[in-house]
Nucleic acid binder design. Structure first.
Lengths: 109, 109
DNA sequence: CTAACGTACAACCACATGGTTGTAGATGAG
DNA sequence: CTCATCTACAACCATGTGGTTGTACGTTAG
């Protein structure tokens, strides 16, 4: 694995807040400064800053310093990893069903 | 939408715990009773029961009573919904990049 | 019937979370 | 240089979280 284990917890926790998911969707479309993001939500700058920090800790976004601004970008690899993890769980039910069908077809009655 | 809004928070929060993700993976492969699940983890029955309740509230599992046991099954639709939501965010970066390329190709220099 | 099992739920605790305000350091504009 | 802007971070508070133990109830086995 590329990233350390236990980070999955942080990734999904980061995704468990609507404001953070909105921030994520926006910065994935186009990078934005922290203060530009802060203007979008009915909460203090510090609160938005904390949300960005949670996303950054989870590895879902990166920050790029540009002048006195900090531009937030989406990090595709981590998000891709989360999707892959869920897909693995999701696919189990189909593998399991396929196995059952197979066993039925193998029956010699 | 099939499910009420604000439930995305609950879904991702439910996924943000390693024990719950493990439970989910197991019951997606094959239904298990709550007590059978409880035997798998180094914590009290009540704790596992709470984890199952969180997954159930999020709509990620369902319970089916069988005798005195409660069989826990994975709920594919909700998980699929979570995956779809992440895919939407993920795809934005590609749409945005495709748009940039398009604009470059349209330049008349 | 009785005893054991599977489940549910309340009460409690330590700790994390999401929000606030306030202070302080870099950086760019004039 | 000076001032406004952007960012960072600490302190604080109410609430939620993950864990515990204890109690209670329905159901099956003997």
């Amino acid at each position: 694995m590329v990233v350390d284990e236990g980070s999955e917890d942080r990734v999904f926790h980061a995704l468990s807040d609507a404001t953070r998911r909105d921030i994520l969707a926006r910065v994935f479309r186009d990078g934005m400064s922290v203060s530009a993001l802060a203007r979008l939500y009915p909460m203090s700058f510090a609160a938005v800053q904390k949300h960005v920090a949670v996303l950054e800790q989870a590895g879902l976004v990166t920050k790029e310093r540009r002048g006195r601004e900090q531009i937030v970008h989406g990090a595709p690899d981590t998000l891709r990893g989360a999707i892959d993890g869920l897909m693995d769980v999701y696919e189990r039910i189909w593998r399991q069903r396929a196995g059952r069908i197979e066993r039925i077809l193998e029956e010699e009655s």
